[in-house]
Simulated scan of single mutants.
Amino acid sequence: MPRVLVVDDTPSIRLLIKTNLELAGFTVEEAVDGVACLEQLAADSVLPDAITIDVMMPRMDGISTVTSLRNDPRTANIAVVMVTTQNHPADIQRATEAGVDCFLVKPFDPDELVDELHRAIEVRTARDNS
């Protein structure tokens, strides 16, 4: 069962993502922002297979968080799907450059989120095994 860390500062969005992912068979944990995400990952002995993350959050935004994830060898290969309202081409480019595997715009289709998470996990797993 794949594990996902849902990172978003809006409780209702975290609940929506968590509910949809649990219905699809994922094990889900939550963090309220980028700082909480990084602290949780540092404390976890078992890392998640994927992270969903928003762009706009207090303390540390999603782009900075993804950059930190990619710069840490321990977390560099976790699949990351950005789920955000920020859909300007510059935002998408910044997210891609930071290392996001997929970019979904809110409101999102729950089935598309599940499909993109599975795809991103498969791609990262195949890359790790080659």
Rank of each mutant, 00 (worst) to 15 (best):
V114Y: 03
P107E: 06
R94G: 04
L47H: 03
Q40R: 13
A126T: 15
E97I: 15
H118N: 14
D44A: 15
T84S: 14
M56F: 04
G25E: 05
P48D: 12
T85V: 15
G62R: 02
I17A: 06
C37D: 10
Q93I: 15
R124A: 15
I53F: 02
S130N: 12
Q93G: 05
G62S: 09
T52M: 07
V114E: 01
D111W: 04
M60E: 08
R124W: 02
V28G: 00
V114L: 01
D44M: 15
G99A: 11
L104F: 04
A120D: 07
P58M: 05
F103P: 00
K18V: 03
P2F: 12
F108D: 08
T19Q: 04
L41V: 09
L23A: 13
S68V: 06
V32A: 09
V32L: 06
D44Y: 08
V123C: 08
V80N: 00
F103Q: 01
A79C: 07
R3C: 12
T75M: 10
T85H: 05
C37A: 13
E116S: 14
A43T: 12
L47C: 04
E29F: 11
C102A: 14
V28R: 03
D115G: 10
D9F: 02
A120C: 14
S68Y: 05
L21K: 02
G62W: 08
P2W: 08
C37Q: 10
V105R: 00
K106Q: 11
F26P: 00
P48E: 13
R3P: 00
D33F: 03
P89W: 10
A126S: 15
V66C: 08
N77A: 11
V114C: 01
V100N: 01
T67C: 07
D91E: 15
D61R: 05
N87R: 08
S130Q: 13
P2A: 15
L69M: 12
A50C: 11
N87T: 11
Q40W: 04
L47N: 03
L117S: 09
V80T: 10
V32E: 10
G62E: 08
I53K: 03
A42Q: 09
V123R: 10
D54Q: 03
V66A: 04
G25Y: 03
H118E: 14
L117C: 09
L69D: 06
T10H: 05
T125D: 11
L47Y: 06
H118M: 08
S12M: 10
R124E: 15
T75I: 04
K106F: 07
T52A: 07
V100R: 01
I17P: 00
T96N: 10
F26Y: 08
D44R: 10
P48C: 12
P107T: 04
I51Y: 01
D9W: 02
R3H: 11
L41T: 02
A42K: 12
C37Y: 06
V7I: 12
N20I: 03
Q93P: 00
D49W: 02
T27C: 01
V83H: 01
V114N: 04
S64Y: 05
P73H: 07
N71Q: 13
M1P: 11
D109L: 06
E122P: 00
A98M: 02
S64A: 14
I51P: 00
